[in-house]
Each structure stands twice: as structure tokens, then as C-alpha cells.
Design a protein around this nucleic acid. Structure first.
Length: 573
DNA sequence: GCCGTTTTCGGCCCGACTGTTTTCAGTCG
């Protein structure tokens, strides 16, 4: 059964071929459908089975039919026909930087060139010399692009956490060293997309040239690709592209909105503006010649009758309708995070020692910390770690943050002897990473112990769905944050739609430039998570209100975390 | 090809930049 990603790729391929045919609007229609399908929180086949394909934004009659054909037969005749009609090499030519569908098509129609190899030969043979539209510079540019493509330097999207450090460093450098009033990141970085293709930095300044000079002098910058009056594009040493734009202060909000995107969100916004006799561009919102908004994003949205929309939600998934009704959900924010329930210490699998973790937790003003021990034979380790951390706390001015203990365990009942230690909460860990049909059953999660389901990625929707079903029974939360072993925002969205909670990775105890916490928070916001569904904000009920009620072993009393005198007892059923 | 609490037809973002141009086409974001 083809995955959603397979279907999205198919429609993107169709779009590329239609581009080469010179189609004007169809390619974008197919790409929009592809984006939409990719961001679904369930399998396309399930949607198709309910006959609801056309409810997917951007999917109409024609694309719904092709989707059904694809699900049924594994291919689409329309696509097969296009492939027969258009040489595959043309798509490669079209993707070369500086070339597009028009030029690729001209090579094919006018010169019989069907791919990179033939184009390279044609240039070497001087066949492009004197052809209208191809001067020396253009030919040089194409030659360079062909060579670069051959050596495999294709630009790829990178994980958000990977670009975070360099993004922050560039912004800090501009804020410190350039004659700029405001410096902000826009684009998919600001929307906290899981991957970013490039960075967009927006600056207000009266001296663009000086800003560009400071920027270009940064050690990370390898090459200036382009510099105009208001815009500079550079490549960093790792190959990441960064666009820097300078705008006027009273245009800043409009520009920030515009360059934050997403494309689909902006398209929807502009059509809304058109309906109201307004025009939106990166300089402001206009009624005729008159500018009615532009200095701030709030004013841009307000001029269109909308409340401000958090960047992480700007994907045209219904957020504009919500903003029109003033019902944009309030999202968890940095100030809401008061703790972390998934901390490993070095004696276990952690990298930061107890002292560092405690210091960082206090710096962050955390009120609770959960230390986790992995493995089934870790009873002794758990005791040792709990004592270590507790002694650090008491030696450094009291028992704040409050401590909790957890055991990271494979699916199934807790091993004997550990129930005493793990009476507060536990982290479940599927041994094979995911549980799929035919594999071991999802865990019989305990009913009264707060459980975080960790080390489950979102790549297998079907497996995640089984975990969600299991989590429902016990109101467990899912670990969310960067990396393949946590849920990303799409998984988070699925969890939110199921009415369940998440636990955010915070990176507490990690070095100051570690992006884990910010990225996890971004993903959670992107998933539409309100603070009340995030366990880092407030402990789940069983921990916060029934901590003094031992469930299994009264002998564990001596290892209980410090109790608040005011905590109330709650007996679990 | 998709879409519509003003439309089932006629729209679909639009400006910066480059290169090849003498006023513009193509690409990019």
C-alpha cells in the first residue's frame, strides 16, 4: 500500500512534467495537493475508504480520482502518459539553479537536448553560442550548474535542530555588529517546520550595504550568491542558503508576515484581502494607493479582520477561519514550561551530571524534575541516582525543584523489584522502536501510574495509531521533540486530535546552545498544543494530587519524593 | 486543477534580481 509520502511525490512529479508542458496553473494545483496530503494525520487509504478525499484541501474531482487509481493499482495512467511524452532528463535540467521549465523546454524543442549529458556536450560543442537569450554569462552559469549537479551538490532540507545554532549565531552577529534596528528570522524556521530549506533573515536599517558587509564577513559565510539594493543571498560553509532582506521600519510587520509564509497561508490571506478590496504585499496592506497597515504583524492581520496568528499555525489548515472568528487556540509558550520528566543521568544514559542538571533546572526556574533510569536491571542504579540527585539538591539549598523517578521500560509489566522505585511514573519504551501489525502487542499500560510513551517516532502512522489507542486507556502522554525517536509536530497533531497530552523534551542540563527545548516547543506549538495538554506545564493529576498514595509497595515510602504538606490524597480506583 | 456566506466561471501573489536586453523574459522565493 503506497504511503501518503509516495502519493505526494507522485503528484509533485506530475507537477514537474506539467511545468515542462508550459501549463500555467495546474502544476501549482498538483503541488498544493501534494503538500496537503503530506500533512495529513492519517493514511490516505483510510480517507479514501470513507470517500472523503475531496475534503482534503487542494484535492478536487480530478486529483481524488487519480488518488483512488493510485491506491488501487499503484500507478496513474495520466502520469505514465506524461512520462512517455516528456524526457526524464528535462526535469533534471529544470531543477538546475538559474534554469526553469521554460528554458529546459527550449533546449528540448529548439535544440533536441533531452538531459544534462546532452546539454554539457552541446555547450562544449558551442551549440548554444549565438542562440537568442544565451549570452556568455548565462552559458557560464549553466556550465557551472551542470558541474555542480554532477558532483552531487543538490540542496536538501535540513532538520530544524541542525540549523538552529547557526541561525542563532547569525542573528546575534547582526544584532551586535550591524546598523540594524530589528533582526528577525522568518520563513519555515520561524514556523518551526521540522526541516528548513534555507534561512530568511529580515532586518530594518537605513544602511543596507553596511548590513550586507557585516553579514558577508561572518565566518560561517562561504560565498555571496547575489547582492541587490535590498536583498543579499549567501551560501554558508555547509551549503545552507541564507537570504537577508532589508526593509523600512513601517514595512517590517508586512515583510515579516510575508516572508514567514507559508505560501498557502499567504495565498489564502491575499484572496481574503481581495474580497475586501485590499491588497497585501511585503510592503503593507493597501486600499488603492493608501497603506492601511504594515508596521506590525498584528496590524496586518487586524486590517483583514483577523486576530494575530502564531507563525507555527500558518499552514492554511483552517487557522484563518479561526482567526476570523477570534478563536485561534492559545498555544503552549516558553514561559509555561516548568519541568522535565525525562532526564537521564550519566550513570544511566545521560550526558549531563546531576549538579549540571540541578543548576540548569534552577536557572530555568523549574519546579519539578523527573529522573529516568533505563533498563530492567537498573534497580540499584535507580536508587543510587535518586540519592545522588537528592543530595545535590539538599546540599545546594533545599529540595527545589521537586524530584520524581521513572523507569524506562520495554512494553509489558514492570519487572519485579522495580515497582517500588517506579511508583511515580514510568517511561514506556517499545523495544523495536515501533510496534506494527504482527509484532508484539502494545503495552498493557498501567492504569493509575502516569506514563510517558517515549522513543516512538511519527514515521509509521499505523504504529503510532496503535500507541494512541493504548494511551487513551491510561491517559498517557507522548514524548515530543527533535529526533527520530520522538514525535514531531505531525505526530503531535494526531495526539492532540485524539485528546491526549504530550511531554516536551527540554534539554535541561545540556549546553546553553543546545536547541532541543526550543525545537520541541516549536513542534508542540505547530501541533496546536494548548498549555493544559503539556505535562511540562503542570504535572498530570496522579502525580500532582496523589503522590502520597503508594500503589504497589508501602516499603517504597523511604524513597518517596519530598511531599508538599498541602498535597491531597487521591485514591485510585 | 481547484475554488467560491457576494462567484459553478474566471480568477489563481507579485516584486527583486539577473542577464540579455533597447523594454523584457525567466527564475526565484
Amino acid at each position: 500500500m503506497p504511503s501518503n509520502a509516495d502519493a505526494a511525490e507522485l503528484f509533485r512529479s506530475i507537477a514537474d512534467l506539467l511545468d515542462l508542458l508550459g501549463e500555467k496553473f495546474k502544476p501549482e494545483a498538483y503541488r498544493r495537493a501534494a503538500r496537503s496530503i503530506e500533512s495529513l494525520t492519517e493514511d490516505l487509504a483510510a480517507v479514501a475508504a470513507r470517500h472523503e478525499l475531496r475534503a482534503i484541501p487542494g484535492v478536487g474531482e480530478a486529483i481524488a480520482e487519480k488518488t483512488e487509481e493510485y491506491l488501487r493499482t499503484g500507478t496513474v495512467q495520466y502520469y505514465e502518459r506524461l512520462k512517455r511524452e516528456i524526457p526524464a532528463g528535462l526535469v533534471e535540467l529544470m531543477r538546475l539553479p538559474g534554469l526553469g521549465p521554460k528554458t529546459a523546454r527550449r533546449f528540448w524543442v529548439e535544440l533536441g537536448i533531452e538531459g544534462p549529458k546532452e546539454l554539457t556536450d552541446a555547450i562544449a560543442a558551442g551549440r548554444l553560442d549565438g542562440v537568442k537569450g544565451f549570452g556568455d554569462k548565462k552559458i557560464d552559469q549553466i556550465r557551472t550548474a551542470l558541474a555542480a549537479a554532477k558532483s552531487g551538490g543538490a540542496a536538501t532540507r535540513r532538520p530544524l535542530e541542525e540549523v538552529f545554532p547557526v541561525a542563532r549565531s547569525l542573528v546575534n552577529a547582526l544584532r551586535a555588529g550591524a546598523p540594524a534596528d530589528r533582526v528577525e528570522l522568518a520563513g519555515s524556521f520561524r514556523r518551526a517546520r521540522e526541516s528548513v530549506g534555507d534561512l530568511d533573515i529580515l532586518v530594518t536599517s537605513k544602511e543596507p550595504t553596511k548590513v550586507f558587509d557585516v553579514f558577508t564577513a561572518q565566518p560561517e559565510v562561504a560565498e555571496v550568491k547575489m547582492r541587490g539594493e535590498t536583498k543579499e543571498t549567501v551560501l554558508l560553509k555547509g551549503g545552507l542558503q541564507v537570504d537577508l532582506r532589508v526593509v523600512e521600519p513601517d514595512e517590517f510587520g508586512a515583510a515579516l508576515q510575508y516572508f514567514t509564509g507559508s505560501k498557502d497561508h499567504n495565498v489564502r490571506l491575499r484572496s481574503l484581502a481581495r474580497d475586501r478590496g485590499l491588497k497585501v504585499n511585503e510592503y503593507g496592506v493597501f486600499r488603492g494607493e493608501e497603506r492601511v497597515a504594515g508596521a506590525t504583524e498584528e496590524e496586518v492581520y487586524a486590517s483583514l479582520g483577523l486576530s494575530w496568528i502564531p507563525p507555527e499555525l500558518r499552514e492554511d489548515r483552517g487557522e484563518i477561519d479561526l482567526a476570523a472568528k477570534g478563536k485561534v487556540p492559545s498555544l503552549v509558550s516558553a514561559g509555561d514550561v516548568h519541568g522535565d520528566l525525562h532526564v537521564h543521568l550519566p550513570a544511566d544514559a545521560g550526558t549531563s551530571d546531576a549538579e549540571t542538571v540541578v543548576r540548569d533546572a534552577r536557572r530555568r526556574n523549574y519546579s519539578f524534575l523527573g529522573v529516568v533510569v533505563a533498563g530492567v536491571d537498573a534497580s540499584g542504579t535507580a536508587w543510587a541516582l535518586s540519592e545522588e540527585l537528592r543530595s545535590h539538591l539538599s546540599a545546594s539549598g533545599g529540595l527545589n525543584p521537586r524530584l520524581y523517578f521513572g523507569v524506562e521500560t520495554a512494553p509489558g509489566p514492570l519487572p519485579k523489584g522495580l515497582d517500588a522505585v517506579a511508583h511515580d511514573y514510568r517511561i514506556l519504551r517499545p523495544s523495536a522502536g515501533t510496534v506494527g501489525p504482527g509484532e508484539s502487542e502494545p503495552p498493557g499500560a498501567p492504569s493509575s501510574v502516569p506514563t510517558v510513551i517515549a522513543h516512538v517516532g511519527a514515521s509509521e502512522t499505523a504504529a503510532l495509531l496503535r500507541w494512541v489507542e493504548e494511551a487513551r486507556k491510561s491517559s498517557a502522554a507522548f514524548d515530543l521533540g527533535p529526533g527520530p525517536e520522538r514525535l514531531d509536530s505531525t505526530g503531535g497533531r494526531l495526539v492532540r486530535e485524539a485528546g491526549l497530552s504530550v511531554h516536551l523534551a527540554t534539554g535541561v542540563g545540556r549546553p546553553p546552545d543546545d536547541p532541543t527545548g526550543e525545537v520541541a516547543l516549536g513542534f508542540a506549538r505547530r501541533a496546536g498544543m494548548p498549555p493544559e495538554k503539556v505535562w511540562n506545564v503542570r504535572l498530570p493529576g496522579a502525580l500532582s494530587s496523589a503522590r502520597s498514595a503508594p500503589r504497589k509497595s508501602p516499603s517504597a515510602g523511604s524513597s518517596d519524593p519530598p511531599r508538599s504538606p498541602s498535597s491531597t490524597r487521591r485514591r485510585s480506583a
